[in-house]
């Protein structure tokens, strides 16, 4: 009964994956008839290339920035919505809005908000006198990546919030009551009851979001195409460019596999973290 699922996955992913792995050991122009074996040459060359090193840096900056903010904001909002107050259900439903919004629409929406000449962000900041004058957001290196992170956080922190909120609701109220009777303060209860209770949910959110963030392509493609000064060029974008603009299949394959390796490193660390905590707890 597993056969259909495995066929689909192996057929559509398995062969191309191995094929890409194979190509990574060749100098293989997309349109050329000839292919030369270069061993690990493409991989070694990747590390020498400033473009590749920069792309690793940009990918990590995006990942750490957006995941960090999403976790903080997500947990804070979940804790806030875990309390009883009128209107809580409406807010909880609203959390679904960014989640269901297609990524490309989200990117287009924020690009319009950040528009240097007519954008709502500039209008808001100048009308409230927080900014003396309209400025360019996606045209300045450093700032551009931060603005993309904001757009990504807006869309995805609600995933963290919803997951954590569900976990919070499985923590028995009696546990908090008992702790309170024993004289535990709010901070202590957060540390010894709430955090352990939401750890599994947080880990799932962390893995899901990290894998997505390390693969990031569409929001970059729509908002900046890697600019300004290539300061938002991430690994996936670099692979896309190397393969389809520069026609270098071999090095594109090597870049792609280094991206897979980076994702594996992150996931391995997370699983390790979970296991060590599991043993200690």
């Amino acid at each position: 009964m597993l056969l259909p699922a495995l066929t689909v996955v192996a057929g559509v992913v398995g062969y191309p994956f191995l094929r890409t792995l194979y190509l990574g050991f060749f100098k293989a122009p997309l349109l050329g008839k000839t292919r030369t074996f270069v061993g690990l040459g493409n991989y070694l060359q990747a590390f020498e290339r400033p473009e590749f090193r920069a792309a690793v840096g940009h990918t990590l900056a995006f990942t750490v920035g957006s995941i960090g903010l999403e976790l903080i904001l997500g947990v804070a909002v979940a804790l806030f919505l875990d309390r009883a107050f009128v209107g809580r259900r409406i807010l909880r439903a609203l959390l679904i809005l960014p989640l269901a919004l297609p990524t490309v629409v989200n990117a287009v929406m924020w690009r319009w908000i950040y528009n240097p000449e007519y954008g709502a962000l500039n209008a808001l900041l100048t009308q409230t006198h927080l900014l003396p004058d309209y400025r360019s957001w996606l045209g300045a290196p450093g700032i551009a990546m931060a603005m993309i992170v904001v757009a990504d956080v807006w869309k995805n922190f609600t995933l963290v919030a919803l997951l954590v909120l569900a976990a919070l609701q499985t923590i028995p109220v009696e546990l908090h009551d008992a702790a309170r009777v024993d004289g535990a303060g709010g901070v202590q209860r957060l540390r010894y009851i709430t955090l352990p209770g939401i750890r599994p949910a947080l880990l799932v959110a962390l893995v899901l979001r990290t894998v997505e963030a390390l693969k990031v392509f569409d929001i970059i493609y729509v908002m900046t195409r890697g600019g300004p000064a290539s300061s938002t060029k991430t690994l996936s974008f670099l692979v896309y460019e190397e393969a389809f603009s520069f026609l270098q299949l071999g090095s594109a394959a090597a870049y792609a596999f280094l991206t897979v390796a980076l994702i594996l490193v992150f996931v391995a660390v997370y699983i390790r973290l979970l296991q060590s905590r599991g043993v200690a707890g």
Binding site: P116, E117, R135, S136, L138, G139, A140, T224, G227, P228
Partner: peptide, 14 residues
């Protein structure tokens, strides 16, 4: 300064 994120159509609009 918006030029550094503009393409031809942005130039036309501005």
């Amino acid at each position: 300064p918006a030029s550094t994120e503009s393409l031809e159509e942005d130039v036309r609009r501005i």
